Amino acid sequence: MTGSDAAPPAGDRPRPAGLTLETWDRPPLNRWSYQHVDEILPTAPVRRGVPAPLTEAPAQLDVRAFAFPDRHGRRLIAGEVLDTSWTDGFLALHRGRIVCEHYANGMRAATPHLTQSLSKSVLAALAGILHHAGAFPLERTVAAYVPAFRDSAYADASMRHLLDMTSGVDFPEDATDPVSGVGLMDIAVGWKAVPAGNPSPRSVHALIASLRGRSRPHGARFEYRSMETEVLGCCIKAATGARLADLVSSLLWQPMGAEHDASFAVDPEGFAVADGGLSATLRDLGRFGLLYARDGAAAGRTVVPEAWVRDTRIGDPALFGGAYAEGRRRGAYRSQFWIDDIEGSVITGLGVFGQMIHIDWQRDFVGVKLSTWPQARDVARRVEACDMMAAMARALAGG
């Protein structure tokens, strides 16, 4: 299905009342703001080069008719799943061609949408490109790349620890206190105002340098923390001397044939918000997913090294568990991608409020879903969307 709802184009929709720095990224205002980040926050462009067209497959997949069983045996209709999960855009690619493209909530093909933590997967691809070029050794420590972090709890963590989120640094992702854990990061990157009289760090670099606590040895187990990606981004910038937005442009967006410019939100010092600040169009996220479905290649040339892509598919379930295992039978996490089943052929990129890239390399299938859920995390809704895309991949590939 190719089309859109009857809502006006995103550019024609007025800024909603009550949108402030405190409220912009929370429901229901996220329904507007995720398509208008550059009107709310400072950003840096990720320039495209010569676009590589995506063509439509001769036979389109009709989401209004596509029925599938979820893992609980219920019969669901894809269109109803999209309609009831605050979808802004959905794209399915099979064998590199569009089999389904759907827009809602005023979004259009040229509309950039905040990707939240899908940004992490893009940054990991950048790290892989640089690593295989010899410019970014993964065994080096944070302090070796950024001497200013030598007193930080991250100082002796390696790039591999950061990529797999296995450092032992104490920095809780789900803290409710706005001035601890990820709440501090929101202030540091400029996504939330500084509370009156609060001495919180005012930039990503300052926040990383201030961290001292550890909860375990590096490498002991996986714990999802967005700060790991911010530290990784700082190390990439230190290793190359280039802005992250420029690197993503020259090493990813241009070589893969992106159709539109993307952008990164930046902190008060102009540093890209590496863990969740990327805004991009639906099709360009599909192009990115195709790199991981096709061993790193686009239009016959290698963009992401094949060895890096293949390694990303192999995680260690022994480091993975607890709440992260919910909905993941034999799960793992590797290089900023989720693996639901280490014996399967799927990796996923995920972002809060319903951002998803589903990549099945054996079936040459990529699904992208951009959303504005009313909750940051919803396991049932995530699993339902994953089941839908897995069913589409099986149907298109003949099993």
Rank of each mutant, 00 (worst) to 15 (best):
L82E: 00
K192Y: 04
R310F: 01
P147Y: 15
L290P: 00
V309R: 04
V99M: 14
S226M: 08
L29P: 07
P58A: 12
G277W: 04
V273G: 01
S371K: 11
F222S: 03
P255F: 11
A65N: 10
L123G: 02
M388F: 05
L285C: 06
P9I: 10
D177V: 12
H94F: 14
D5N: 14
V304K: 01
D378W: 14
G219Y: 09
F365S: 09
G190C: 05
L130K: 08
L130C: 04
M165T: 06
F171G: 07
L232Q: 00
G322H: 12
M356A: 02
R47G: 08
H113D: 04
S33I: 09
A17K: 13
L207D: 00
K120M: 14
S85A: 01
F90V: 14
S345I: 03
L282P: 00
G18P: 09
L19H: 10
R313K: 06
T166R: 14
R64V: 01
N105T: 04
T312Y: 01
Q35V: 05
M159T: 03
V179Q: 06
G354Q: 09
Y145Q: 03
P8D: 09
L247A: 04
S33Y: 09
G344Y: 04
R294M: 00
R221Y: 10
D151K: 15
V204Q: 11
L319N: 08
D340P: 07
R221K: 11
T115Y: 02
A293M: 06
D364V: 05
D341C: 00
Y324T: 07
L118F: 09
V303A: 00
S200P: 06
D387I: 02
Q362T: 10
D284H: 11
A393L: 03
